[in-house]
């Protein structure tokens, strides 16, 4: 099993930390993992993306141009990465702020209206976990137990009391998942 994922959005949306939690959860399941962020000035308020690979084998390139899954959180990223999903692959996006919806017919596309839900519940900081929940609903790559361990590893100890809230957000995300176009 190898899953090659790009997560892309604005800096501050929790793109990098979502990837980190996935990577940690993967490690807990004895998978090989790779987490490669975009870095530099784009970090600050601009676009931000991270390539996460989970695999049962040695990971070749940490840098990719085709992905099994793209998790898209803003229009710029949609424009850039819709075409980078492998045929038959998966695209998950938050429709908030998206004016040009994806048009591909050879991939599975789902929406997770995470931003609206997060602001409705007053948990905007957990926005990324809602999105992650949507993804895990389609591809349960990591078990809830391993996700818990991954959260423990990736969050500093002073934030460990927030882990249950994170897990709740993941569950909310699973419930929000809506098919947009499936093959």
């Amino acid at each position: 099993m190898t899953e090659e994922i790009i997560i892309a959005g604005f800096g501050g949306q929790g793109v990098l930390s979502m990837g980190k939690i996935l990577a940690y959860a993967g490690i807990m399941q004895d998978k090989e993992v790779s987490w490669l962020p975009s870095y530099g000035p784009e970090m600050r308020g601009g676009t931000s993306n991270v390539t996460v690979i989970l695999s049962d084998e040695r990971i070749c390139s940490p840098y990719l141009n085709q992905f099994d899954t793209a998790i898209i959180l803003n229009q710029q990223s949609m424009d850039k990465f819709e075409s980078a999903v492998k045929p038959g692959g998966l695209l998950i996006y938050d429709p908030n702020g998206i004016t040009h919806h994806p048009t591909r017919k050879d991939i599975n596309i789902y929406q997770v209206a995470a931003a609206d839900k997060a602001s409705e519940l007053g948990i905007s900081k957990l926005f990324n976990m809602i999105v992650l929940g949507g993804f895990l609903k389609v591809k349960p790559l990591v078990t809830p137990e391993m996700l818990h361990k991954g959260l423990e590893k990736s969050l500093p100890e002073r934030h460990h009391h927030l882990i249950p809230k994170n897990e709740e957000a993941v569950e909310i995300g699973k419930g929000l998942l809506t098919p947009y176009h499936t093959i």
């Binding site: 980190k20 990577a23 490690i27 090989e32 993992v33 790779s34 987490w35 490669l36 962020p37 870095y39 990971i59 940490p62 840098y63």
Partner: peptide, 10 residues
Amino acid sequence: DGVIGQVMEK
């Protein structure tokens, strides 16, 4: 290089 410096792995 920047890839190996920035990438997280086990």
